[in-house]
Amino acid sequence: MLDACASGWKKAEKTHNFIVTFGGKTYPGLPKKHSSVEIGHIRHMARLLGILDCAKTQIELMR
């Protein structure tokens, strides 16, 4: 999803989360330990990074 919608995105691994950066925006709260309800994190991150319109279809496929 990020490759398709956020070309040039970067990820940094921290103790508890991944930090995802794209287009000058940073999402620091992507959990490293995914739970069964992770799709909300993906949706919120895509919205903050400004790629939700592009990512919508792929997010729905994750359900």
């Binding site: 940073t26 620091p28 709260g29 309800v37 909300g40 994190h41 919120h44 991150m45 903050l48």
Partner: peptide, 14 residues
Amino acid sequence: WMYGVQPGGVAGGG
């Protein structure tokens, strides 16, 4: 789900 507005970089659901 709870989606952060400010700070915006965090969410939580259950």
